[in-house]
C-alpha cells in the first residue's frame, strides 16, 4: 500500500502545479508584457511599445529638444503614415511618444495645431479663438512613416517593421531623425517574446 502512496500523491498534485502555469481561460495580462501574443505579419502592441521607448530615448539623448529659446519645446504632431498592409491607428505609436516626452518635461505637445488646420481638440481651439489669443507656434513638428518588408523561405515567414520619425524645426530642417526596426520570424503566432 505504501508503495503506491507516492505516485498517487504525485498524480494528485500535478494538476495543481500545471494550473498555476497555464490556463486556457481569458485573463488580464500586462500590456506589451511577456505573455503578449507575438505575430509575424502584424505590428503587435509590444512592437509599438518598444519602438516608442527606443525613439524617445534617442530623441532625449540627442538634446534636440533643448535647442529652443524658451524650454520646454512645443511640439505638433504632423502626419505619421502607415505604409504597412495592416490597418491601425498611428496614434498607437505617436501617443506613446507624446506621453513620454510630456513626462520628460522636455516638450509639450499642442492639441490645437494640426495638419490642414485640423485640431486634435476642437474645443480648445475654439476657446483659444474666442479669447483672441495668439495661437501657439510649435518649435517642432514630428512626422514619420511605418514601413513593412516581408520575406518568406518555405513556410517560415519574416516581417520587418521600420518606424521612421523626423523632428523638423521652424526652418524646415530635420533636427533629429530616428529609425527603429523590429524583425519577427516564425511559422505562426505565439505567446511571449
Amino acid at each position: 500500500m505504501k508503495r503506491y502512496l507516492f505516485p498517487v500523491a504525485l498524480l494528485a498534485l500535478a494538476p495543481l502545479v500545471w494550473t498555476g502555469c497555464s490556463s486556457g481561460g481569458a485573463r488580464r495580462i500586462d500590456a506589451g508584457g511577456r505573455e503578449s501574443i507575438t505575430t509575424v505579419g502584424q505590428v503587435d502592441i509590444q512592437d509599438f511599445v518598444a519602438a516608442a521607448e527606443a525613439s524617445v530615448g534617442k530623441l532625449l539623448l540627442s538634446g534636440a529638444l533643448d535647442k529652443v529659446p524658451k524650454p520646454p519645446a512645443i511640439l505638433a504632431v504632423s502626419l505619421v503614415r502607415n505604409q504597412t498592409g495592416q490597418q491601425f491607428d498611428t496614434d498607437l505609436l505617436t501617443k506613446k511618444i507624446r506621453v513620454k516626452l510630456n513626462t520628460s518635461g522636455k516638450a509639450l505637445t499642442t492639441t490645437t495645431v494640426g495638419l490642414d488646420g485640423v485640431a486634435e481638440d476642437p474645443l480648445a481651439k475654439q476657446l483659444q479663438g474666442e479669447q483672441q489669443k495668439t495661437g501657439v507656434t510649435p518649435d517642432f513638428t514630428l512626422s514619420g512613416k511605418i514601413i513593412e518588408t516581408r520575406a518568406r523561405a518555405g513556410d517560415v515567414r519574416q516581417s520587418t517593421f521600420s518606424f521612421q520619425l523626423s523632428l523638423t524645426d521652424r526652418r524646415g530642417l530635420a533636427l533629429w531623425e530616428g529609425e527603429e526596426e523590429i524583425t519577427k520570424q516564425g511559422k505562426r503566432p505565439s505567446v511571449g517574446f
Binding site: D30, R34, K100, S104, G105
Partner: peptide, 25 residues
Amino acid sequence: TTGAILPCVIEGKETRFLSAVAPHP
C-alpha cells in the same frame, strides 16, 4: 507609460551592450 520589456538575442560567447535612457532628468 511604456516601460518596455525588451527581447534580446545573444550569440554564444558574444559580448553585447544594452543601453537605456532615463525618461526624466
